[in-house]
Write a protein that binds this DNA or RNA. Structure first.
Lengths: 145, 145
DNA sequence: TCAGACATGATACCTCGTCTCAGTGAGACA
DNA sequence: TGTCTCACTGAGACGAGGTATCATGTCTGA
């Protein structure tokens, strides 16, 4: 079963119809290698309207098919989520590559914080920014030349 | 020395002029108890123009006088920073109260991640969301009544 | 005094996202 | 088969939040 079919089935299981514009958006999302903005999708899905693309992305976010990535300049991008469960991102500020971090090491901190602060902590947002090994070696090569 | 004077001195030390509109924005920021949007400041500084308020907030962010707070609905607010150094926030989604977390417990995780991922990690963004003790007791009172 | 740098407010503009609304089409049902 | 309902659609208006531009004002140092 292709990814497109799998996502379509998940939509149908929730009672949503899988229409041609939605298929176009899902296909465009599945083609994206890294993170992308809604504007990128709008360019790829010329047939689908602006509102439809936004609506479909919101649907896919609810389904856990895509997840939101906060870049270090504050802009919000999306990314195909290979992990429907809670996870974090490691974003390369050089090439834009994003890596998933599946073990949430903050959960211990959350427990500790719940005790000390009196808050009932329901969620958190954690993103790491840095340079991947490829970008680091490029920078070093640039300096030495 | 008042807070207003202290911030003014920091601006001057960086070579910026302390003009009446800037003083008005700084005073408005210092009066804010919790987090605020630029729109809130615009209401409080009727004399200063929209662009000036945005420019001054950007300046104050650079100086570390205010810091950005990402709310759980994705909107960006600002907050008077009592800790110029790196810190995190604990945001109450009920009343909007924000608490600073000064010990960055992610630094161990950053070191560990640098080794395992090959990334040179330069920054991270961490916000916690939950309900403060006051909001929790309100909810409980509402349920029991 | 004067030139140049800096700061200003007004306003146009941009980006990103939501809302509204009339039209469309798929599916249920008589 | 016809009709009815309702989810879904695209177009476009709208709003929030922020930036760019520009003429003008003000400060500073020579």
């Amino acid at each position: 079963m292709s990814d497109l079919e799998a996502v379509s089935l998940r939509l149908e299981a929730r009672g949503y119809r899988v229409t041609p514009p939605r298929r176009a958006v899902i296909a465009a999302v599945l083609q994206q290698a890294g993170h992308f903005s809604v504007e990128d999708l709008l360019h790829r899905c010329r047939g689908a309207g602006r509102a439809t693309v936004f609506r479909t992305i919101r649907l896919l976010t609810e389904l856990g098919v895509v997840c939101r990535v906060l870049l270090d300049d504050g802009s919000l991008h999306y990314r195909l989520s290979h992990r429907p469960q809670h996870h974090h991102h490691l974003v390369c500020t050089g090439c834009g590559k994003v890596q998933d971090l599946d073990d949430c090491a903050v959960s211990d901190l959350v427990r500790e914080l719940s005790g000390s602060s009196g808050y009932e902590i329901e969620g958190h947002w954690l993103e790491f920014y840095g340079h991947c090994s490829a970008c680091r070696s490029e920078v070093l090569a640039g300096v030495s030349s």
